[in-house]
Design a protein around this nucleic acid. Structure first.
Length: 510
RNA sequence: GCCAAGGUGGCAGAGUCCGGUCUAACGCAGCGGCCUGCAGAGCCGCCCAUCGCCGGUUCAAAUCCGGCCCUUGGCUCCA
């Protein structure tokens, strides 16, 4: 089954066919770097990451562009705040650093390019000039606006009608526009103090000498690029006039993506994006999570608290295009899911390294579980990148592996009858199961079973200390002092160390 | 008000495009059993939904059509 994706423009799910059968051009609307990234961003990133991974898995070369908006009033509003730096540039640099660090922490594969607006002003100007030349845009008091009435398809993505779009509050800006829905491609002068003030954090006083941010030379005088034009300019600069997939948050559909389509298609005269994919948002108990509401958890804190694997499992526990509820319970469930996968993976590896594996008894049930899991996972990801179903397929594989291992392990009656001599693991079957976990769980979902929750450094000492305690507990058990043994176990658990008695000795994890 | 998305078990969440196999998936929680000194992990089994409401089409609807109610998001910076 071939890959199908849901396109916001048509509202339909349809087969994915890139322009070039070997290459996929992917653009993702990145962040305005005015705050540390939060979990909502992480959710979109992880899904885009999985999309890129899956497209690679299908054999496409993926050219993936993800921009940084580093010229914006919101950034200017942070100048001087908490030692962030004395210029728009410095603030942006700080948050770009934070963002890249958060991305690494989430085990995201790097995009091909991370372009910045400040480095693409010439392309922005060139695009605006083209739009003016084609009569889609007009200059007014040093600013340039896009004339929405000139672009026939305006509103096709968001189903908005031009008449329904309300006028903006800014009286000056409205006076400069021909139509209230017209939007700025270029804004004259520096960042306006008024606009900057609306983006300042609560309780933060305006600096004595307010900054206007960076200004750039243009044919219309000094000014700053509008928010929407930058994505068109950068997308075209790195991917050409028509891209295959454009991804972004659902909250960007209008006006941002609508305007991108208008500008790009008006300028190029051809289709801008073949497929528009929109990632849905997080929901807290009552409202969405967003920068503007300030009710977010930063990526950094979430990674610290839950770890990359649990976080990625949580974030891919729903389809990208459905809203997800953020709660402690949901995180706990994700933790259970990840651990179940990880345990099965490690059990398989331990078994394959053990002597029983050499007996090479083929277990048809295991083989079937592997084939089913592979087929189900593939079908799930091909169905609009359905990561939740993908997880389910892997979870089912974990069950298959566990069943096989439980049987071979003890040499149950049933296994004895079936295999003649009973004991023995299906070496090749386990090998294939491990490969499936690695290929899909690690390669596509971006999990890391090898880590298994451990943090580098100090592990050796911790291990030694834990083993010391375990020795003591073992002696207590041998002496029948179970109260003491259980107390040690409880205390270890309080420290975050779970132990587990098995036939071969005591295992632990933390 | 306008434009979207959605209302399925205790939670979470598939299935709705292409009606029947949905007596409704996977997972979490809960219960029972195996294993275990106990616990945990694992395995086996079980409990819990007639699918927002009303009406229609059909031999047959969670799935199609109409109306209504409710929730969320967008319409303003936002992944």
């Amino acid at each position: 089954m071939a890959l199908c994706v849901t396109d916001t423009l048509t509202g339909e799910k349809r087969p994915f066919e890139p322009r070039d059968p070997e290459e996929v051009l992917l653009y993702y609307c990145g962040l305005t770097v005015s705050d540390p990234p939060h979990l909502g961003h992480a959710r979109s990133w992880v899904h885009v990451d999985v999309m890129a991974r899956w497209l690679s898995h299908l054999g496409y070369d993926v050219r993936h562009v993800e921009n940084f908006t580093d010229v914006n009033e919101k950034i200017v509003a942070r100048i001087g705040e908490n030692g962030l730096g004395e210029s728009e540039e410095a603030v942006a640099r700080t948050y770009i650093g934070d963002t890249l660090a958060a991305m690494r922490g989430l085990n995201l594969r790097r995009a091909t390019v991370y372009p910045r607006v400040s480095e693409h002003v010439p392309e922005v100007i060139e695009l605006i000039e083209t739009l003016i030349a084609k009569d889609y845009a007009y200059e007014s008091s040093g600013s340039v606006y896009f004339d929405v009435t000139e672009f026939e398809g305006y509103g096709k993505l968001s189903n908005q009608r031009i008449e329904g779009i309300e006028a903006q509050d800014d009286a000056d800006e409205r006076a400069e526009k021909r139509h209230p829905a017209d939007f700025a491609l270029w804004k004259a002068g520096g960042a306006s103090a008024e606009s900057v003030a609306t983006h300042r954090h609560k309780g933060v006083e305006a600096p004595a000498e307010p900054s206007e941010g960076r200004v750039f030379e243009s044919p219309w005088g000094e000014g700053r690029p509008g928010w929407h034009i930058e994505c068109s300019a950068m997308s075209m600069a790195h991917l050409g006039e028509t891209i295959d997939i454009h991804v972004g948050g659902r909250d960007l559909v209008f006006p941002h993506h609508e305007n991108e389509i208008a500008q790009s298609e008006a300028a190029s005269g051809t289709e801008f994006a073949r497929y528009w994919l929109h990632a849905d948002l997080f929901e807290l108990s009552e409202e969405k999570m967003s920068s503007s509401l300030g009710n977010f958890v930063t990526v950094e804190r979430a990674i610290e608290e839950y770890g990359t694997n649990v976080l990625r499992t949580f974030l891919t526990a729903g389809a990208y295009n459905s809203t997800q509820t953020y709660s402690e319970v949901a995180i706990t469930e994700a933790k259970e899911r990840f651990e179940r996968l990880s345990r099965a993976y490690h059990r398989a590896i331990e078994a394959i390294d053990g002597p029983d594996a050499r007996t090479k008894v083929a277990d048809p049930a295991l083989r079937e579980a592997i084939e089913t899991a592979r087929a189900d996972f593939t079908a799930a990801l091909n169905d609009d990148f359905d990561t939740r179903e993908g997880q389910a397929a892997l979870l089912a594989l974990a069950g298959g592996v566990n069943r096989h291992l439980d049987e071979g392990d003890g040499g149950t009656e049933k296994a004895n009858e079936a295999d003649g001599d009973g004991h023995g693991y299906d070496y090749r079957g386990l090998r294939r199961a491990i490969e499936a976990f690695e290929k899909f769980g690690e390669g596509v979902l971006g999990l890391d079973f090898a880590e298994a929750g451990a943090i580098e450094g100090k592990i050796e000492l911790a291990d030694d200390l834990i083993e010391l305690v375990l020795d003591s507990r073992e002696r207590a058990r041998e002496a029948g002092e179970y109260d003491r043994a259980d107390a040690l176990r409880a205390e270890l658990r309080d420290l975050g160390v779970e132990i587990e008695d098995t036939a071969e000795g005591t295992d632990y994890r933390y």
